[in-house]
């Protein structure tokens, strides 16, 4: 059982130590100077502007990306579940961003979202919509949404694949009998596809929410939490506190994130699992 030992040493033990450290006030791993601080670190996260911003951004990010990933993923899956000209090539293309590493994706979009020379603003200018040109990554109000769109670009294809497999597991018989009863395309989707797809939707949703709350790499690769703390999220906050030696606060943030994920994910899962129908 070497696996269990590894898992214990590198996952469970750190979680417990993390909980412990988060209750203290200390600098570096200098336990001699540590003083018991109770919940101070947690309170600081709630109170300080930077960290409140991170809390807010993390939720915004998780919600916005989940909505759009599910929406685009579902639309693509429905469209690509039909036999079209070169369906497989299209599926391959739509899934491609999911295999490119996030740093590369971050750099590609840093270039495309460049305020003056970026491809996005130029394209908007070219079709006469220069009014819509934005400082995508440098405008503090907009930056977090720009990052959301990068995440959606990267992962919609992944959601699509999960849903597509779910759809292909639905027996054709249902559609045939619906056809005989004269059901419209929308009715077929609403009363057959959707209910039977719930397990797959559930999984895609949960993965998306977890991924959204844990976000770090795409932020680090594009804005590093800037400008100021406009795009700070939990992941980048933890990384910063690590870099500056404020380990206790980092641990507190990390534990808080774990608790939030637990609180959100479990009820969501239960809620949807209850509605599933047996096929």
């Amino acid at each position: 059982m070497p696996g269990l030992i590894l898992f214990a040493v590198f996952f469970i033990v750190p979680s417990v130590i993390g909980l412990f450290i988060s209750l203290f006030q200390m600098y570096g791993f200098n336990f001699a100077s540590a003083r018991f601080a109770g919940l101070t670190n947690y309170i600081n996260i709630m109170v300080e502007d930077d960290t409140r911003k991170a809390l807010y951004n993390t939720f915004t990010f998780a919600i916005v990306t989940t909505i759009f990933k599910m929406l685009f993923g579902l639309l693509l899956a429905v469209a690509l579940n039909k036999k079209l000209f070169m369906t497989n090539a299209l599926r391959t293309i739509f899934f491609l961003p999911a295999v490119i590493n996030t740093v590369a994706v971050g750099l590609i979009f840093s270039s495309m979202m460049h305020p003056t020379k970026g491809l996005i603003n130029r394209a908007l200018g070219a079709i006469g919509l220069s009014a819509l040109c934005q400082n995508w990554l440098t405008d503090p109000k907009l930056a977090i949404f720009s990052i959301c769109s990068i995440e959606v670009w990267k992962w919609s294809g992944f959601t699509m694949v999960i849903l597509l497999t779910g759809m292909q597991n639905i027996s054709v018989d249902y559609y045939e009998s619906a056809q005989l009863d004269g059901a419209s395309e929308w009715q077929k989707f609403r009363y057959i596809t959707f209910p039977l797809l719930l397990p797959a939707i559930n999984n895609a949703l949960i993965l998306s929410i977890i991924g959204g709350l844990k976000v770090f790499d795409v932020v680090q690769a594009t804005t590093q939490g800037g400008p100021g703390s406009a795009t700070e999220v939990f992941g980048s906050l933890i990384y910063k506190s690590f870099g500056t030696g404020r380990f206790a606060e980092g641990c507190a943030a990390s534990i808080l994130l774990a608790v939030i994920i637990g609180i959100i994910v479990l009820p969501t899962y239960r809620f949807i699992a209850d509605k599933e129908v047996e096929q």
């Binding site: 040493v9 791993f29 933890i238 690590f242 990390s254 994910v265």
Partner: peptide
């Protein structure tokens, strides 16, 4: 019970700073 623990590992983020400490 151990399988349930694995689910926790699937969902919860790894506590990276204490892990660093353990490795240290």
């Amino acid at each position: 019970r151990l399988s349930t623990l694995m689910v926790a590992g699937l969902v919860l983020p790894v506590q990276i700073i204490p892990t660093y400490f353990v490795c240290n």
